[in-house]
Design a protein around this nucleic acid. Structure first.
Lengths: 334, 334
DNA sequence: TTGAAAGCGGTACCAT
DNA sequence: ATGGTACCGCTTTCAA
């Protein structure tokens, strides 16, 4: 069943059928109804490949993340999918892992597949040295990066001010007397570095001395954090509050500290489901995934309308307070 | 840059270039090398839409789940993506939510998009009454259901024996004297019903009386569980162990119980990241997502090779023991 | 081993 | 408002 069959059954040419398919106004109401009813009766659906060939688009958006089981990425993918579906666009998902070679290969596959645009989720897509694959992809289609920033033509970035968020939280803690903050992190991505910088900046701005700045890198696992915390306690290292670059690190730290009878403020990052599952529940920084995704989709809309589109959009983070730390509202200052 | 350009630059016909693209053996080594090197120099990549039109396939697999932020689904999607990528197939992801109308629409979009097959993740895709959309989809492409079972032509199901797993765990608990098990669940999907049945079967097989069978439905939220547990305690309802249909319910129950000073066995379901983040960590049933996904992909491979493919494949679950409950190894019997 | 040409199923320009 | 037709870029059959 193709456009020729429909045309024949209706006694019109394929051009007219095509016009109906594309909602052209240049068809009489009568003819249109006739064609539509025949299409319905016959269960006709236009061939997506042929249409893609003619229009050079199948309304598909490539979406890449390093790991869909990471709640932050999953949430972002879900939002993006939902927003694009409104426009009848589907997403092709690619989970790349962290190997540069795999990321490059996946990205070029996306381009070869002729998706309309590609959305990279997470700062893991900004490489230290070699972003040539992204530059190349951006030569054929727009590239959107969520929570990462690379300055290249036709690459548009939407980031959350994570550095600022961490800095503010450091200030809030210190302001309440928690002047020795243990900062746990697990990756040195763009995002990871931003948060770490925020921690250090915050400490410096609050006038803390070098020995009060305690940032510790651990593996991305509950076990690793547990061991590290126990080690710090065994060594007699002092700290009176904890911040982490990820909820799972904060959760693990929280649990280990409680097991050791220590009740001190703990702040996580990403405001994931984990934050609600710890006891006490975990105060966490919301990195505004939804807002970033909405912005990403809007950027593409604006580009389609030939509007001028900013190459970088910054969104502020927000602290979601739960039991593991509540901000003291009185006398707060930066 | 298309196949004609390449043909011209090589002084051959497009047929020969096409043969090279498709690894046909009917090309001389010399010609092949010439063409390959020109392709490489020119950075030629065949047009995916044109190819799709000719071959009636763009090597895309539709994947549907109700909610990608659910860790079980995310994990399954990740596995499926990884396995298909090995075969140079990409996945089109659709998150449908739980509305039947949306599921129907998404499924028909997938078919209209001419994906090679569609994988439905989760028993939420088995409707109580109306599975006509699945039957219709299966008339054009194979439909694989992961963790759900519908008996229809060209629909292939891979399920985990969740009912059996719950039944066995009930038996283990009762065998150790935990003869009043609170069972928490949140959905009446196929999977949800299976687990609930397993609970009831287990209780019956262990000779428990009706008043010792305590299954409680709650909303899918930490808060709902908290309230329910507190309510049960307030009412003086007795139970000496807890099982749940989802880790998040078990985690919430565990936390609430500890806050009330109750240390009793708790078993979750899905073996998700949450299980490692509670304190004590949560013993949970692994529903073998990876094994199910591998089976799903293999089914499609076998179909492509015209092998006979089972319409239902059952895989056994496995208990992952953590701190919230450890099986007593001595004297265990069903 | 290679080439010519007929599809595949649409879109869109140019006439009428 | 409608029709004729070239074209999108590849696959594949049939001849040579």
């Amino acid at each position: 069943m193709n456009i020729y069959d429909i045309a024949e059954k209706c006694g019109v040419s394929i051009a007219t059928v095509s016009r109906v398919l594309n909602n052209s106004p240049r068809v009489s109401e009568k003819t249109r109804n006739k064609i539509l009813s025949v299409m319905k009766n016959e269960g006709y659906v236009p061939n997506a490949f042929a249409r893609g060939l003619g229009l050079d688009s199948m309304r598909m958006i490539g979406v890449m993340c390093t790991d869909i089981t990471d709640p932050f990425y999953a949430n972002a993918v879900g939002n993006i999918e939902r927003l694009f579906k409104r426009q009848n666009k589907d997403i092709v998902l690619c989970c790349t892992g962290n190997e540069l070679a795999d990321k490059k290969k996946s990205l070029s596959y996306m381009v070869d597949r002729r998706v309309d645009a590609v959305v990279l989720i997470g700062s893991a897509f900004k490489e230290e040295t070699d972003n040539s694959h992204i530059r190349r992809a951006a030569e054929s289609i727009p590239v959107i990066i969520i929570n990462g920033y690379i300055d290249l033509p036709n690459v548009y970035c939407v980031v959350c001010d994570e550095r600022g968020a961490v800095r503010e939280n450091v200030a809030a803690l210190v302001n309440e007397g928690y002047n020795k903050i243990l900062y746990l992190y697990d990756a040195s991505t763009y995002s990871g570095n931003e948060k770490l910088s925020g921690y250090k900046e915050g400490c410096r701005l609050c006038g803390l001395s070098a020995e009060d700045i305690l940032s510790v890198r651990v593996a991305h696992s509950v076990k690793a954090v547990e061991e590290k915390i126990n080690e710090l306690i065994a060594l007699g290292t002092e700290f009176n509050s904890v911040m982490a670059s990820e909820d799972i690190l904060a959760a693990a730290a929280l649990n280990t500290l409680r097991k050791n009878g220590k009740k001190i403020p703990v702040i996580g990052f990403n405001n994931s489901a984990i934050a609600e599952c710890t006891n006490p529940s975990l105060t966490s920084v919301d990195n505004m995934a939804e807002a970033m995704c909405e912005t990403a989709v809007r950027l593409l809309d604006d580009m389609a309308e030939q509007k001028n589109v900013p190459s970088k959009t910054v969104i502020s983070a927000r602290l979601i307070e739960r039991e593991s730390y509540k901000k003291n509202r009185r006398g707060q200052k930066l």
